[in-house]
Simulated assay, not measured.
Amino acid sequence: MELFCHELVETDSSCRPVRAFRDAVLTRDSRVCQNLLSSERPSIKPGTEPTDEQRYVRPILTGWMLQVCEDQKCEEEVFPLAVHYLDRHMSQNAVLRCRLQLLGCVCMFLASKLRESVPLSAAKLCVYTDHAVTVPEILQWEVLLVSRLDWDLAAVLPSDFLEPLLQTLPLSAEDTASVRRHVLSYIALSSTELKFSVFAPSAVACSCVTAAVIRLDVLKNEYGPDGLLQLLRDVLDTDMVRTHSLVTRDVTIHSTHDSI
Rank of each mutant, 00 (worst) to 15 (best):
R249T: 13
I253H: 08
P225E: 09
L229P: 00
T252R: 13
V251N: 10
D237W: 12
V241I: 11
L231G: 03
R242F: 06
T243P: 09
V241F: 05
D234W: 13
L228K: 03
R233M: 09
D237F: 13
S255A: 12
G224R: 15
H244D: 02
L246H: 01
D226W: 05
G227I: 02
I253W: 05
T243D: 08
P225V: 01
I253P: 03
D234V: 11
L228A: 02
L231S: 07
D226Y: 09
T243F: 04
V247M: 03
R233K: 15
L229Y: 01
Q230C: 07
L232W: 00
H244K: 14
P225M: 03
T252D: 10
V251R: 05
G224E: 15
T256H: 12
V235H: 02
S245H: 11
V235P: 02
D239G: 15
L231Y: 05
L246M: 11
P225D: 06
D250S: 04
D237H: 14
D237K: 12
L231F: 05
S245A: 10
D234K: 14
L236V: 02
H244R: 15
T243E: 04
R242C: 13
T248L: 09
V241M: 10
L229H: 00
V247Q: 00
H244F: 04
L231R: 06
D237G: 08
R233P: 01
T248R: 12
M240F: 07
D237M: 13
L246Y: 00
S245C: 12
L229D: 00
L246E: 00
D239S: 10
D234L: 13
T238P: 05
L231W: 04
H244Q: 11
H254I: 10
S255Y: 10
R242E: 08
G227H: 09
H254D: 06
D250Q: 13
R233F: 05
I253G: 03
V247H: 01
R249N: 10
T248G: 14
D226L: 04
S255T: 13
G227K: 04
T243W: 03
R233A: 07
T252W: 05
R249P: 04
G227C: 10
T243H: 05
